[in-house]
Amino acid sequence: MSLVIENATLALEGKTILDDVSFAIRPGRLNALIGPNGAGKSSILRVILGFESSARAHIDFEGSDFHAQSRRARARIAALVEQTAATEQPIEVHDVVMLGRLPHQGMWAADSEKDDEAIVARAMTRAGVAGFASRRFSTLSGGEQQRVHIARALAQSPRLLLLDEPTNHLDLSAQIAVMNVLRALADEGLTILVTMHDLNLTAAWFDTVIALDRGRLVAQGNPDTVIDSAFVAEVYGVAATIVPNPATGRPMIAYGP
């Protein structure tokens, strides 16, 4: 396993957000964190990155204690793509992506400007946004902006990529574009953990599903073993029928009685 989370516990203002959550994921796979609003999905990402000072957890990445490293060192290993990171500032896409190089730039700029430019160009190409380099970020569509943020994360040269609902509020075409990027990155061997809201999108694209409910781990496995009608009813409180996708055989969720 590449990323191991052990006994993650978090309480804020007297409310339990995470209750002794443990799971592990492997590189080269698309791993989804699912669950209803308030289940603790985004909080897990913050705990992994060490952003929640009151949390208790042991995070192991590639055999080492991740939290024992400095924040700067962690930023060179792990990158986060948040749900919303819009700006109205007149900043070009190239400069947004270049922000991903900050953890690698010390006082004396250990990496040369030429090296940074090459890394940024490669990140934009991998995310499919190289053609937008000179455009203002604020002029892009939601799906295009999300791919720019993935490019910015890739410019960090991470070995661990965390994404918080990257397809939220995107149209179908943009969702597929983002998922194609993530699929390619997983196939390259990156360790990827994504919080997801859409169960059908999760079932169609992801290799592993980790389900949370009210801060607790309630299921983990392949989509076809986790996402069934009993699971949807118990965790989401919704009646659903699960049928196989005629093209792929993966689960499809039909909601309603």
Results as ranks from 00 to 15, higher is better:
75 A>M: 07
139 T>A: 01
113 E>V: 15
72 R>G: 06
241 T>H: 13
41 K>Y: 07
48 I>S: 01
79 A>K: 15
235 V>L: 09
5 I>K: 12
3 L>E: 03
173 S>K: 15
51 F>E: 13
140 L>H: 03
100 G>E: 05
135 R>K: 14
247 A>W: 04
253 I>H: 04
119 I>S: 00
247 A>P: 04
91 I>M: 11
120 V>D: 08
80 L>H: 02
217 L>H: 06
72 R>S: 01
94 H>T: 13
51 F>C: 12
44 I>C: 10
153 A>H: 04
22 S>Q: 03
124 M>R: 15
112 S>C: 03
143 G>H: 02
220 Q>P: 14
74 R>P: 07
118 A>D: 04
96 V>R: 12
54 S>A: 14
62 E>S: 14
203 A>R: 14
205 W>G: 05
171 D>H: 00
143 G>Q: 13
218 V>Y: 06
208 T>Y: 06
153 A>W: 04
255 Y>M: 12
236 Y>N: 13
91 I>F: 01
60 D>P: 05
165 E>S: 01
239 A>I: 09
206 F>V: 09
165 E>W: 02
47 V>T: 13
165 E>R: 12
69 Q>M: 09
131 G>Q: 10
183 R>G: 10
15 K>I: 01
84 T>I: 01
119 I>V: 02
149 H>S: 11
149 H>G: 10
207 D>T: 08
144 E>Y: 00
107 M>T: 08
123 A>L: 04
230 A>V: 12
126 R>C: 09
135 R>L: 14
21 V>W: 10
218 V>E: 14
125 T>D: 14
30 L>Q: 02
173 S>R: 15
75 A>H: 03
103 P>G: 00
147 R>F: 00
87 T>V: 01
194 V>M: 11
19 D>H: 15
77 I>L: 14
34 I>K: 01
88 E>Q: 12
4 V>L: 14
28 G>T: 11
167 T>Q: 13
107 M>V: 09
194 V>F: 06
70 S>D: 07
71 R>D: 07
182 L>P: 15
2 S>R: 12
257 P>A: 10
146 Q>Y: 00
89 Q>H: 10
118 A>G: 09
242 I>V: 04
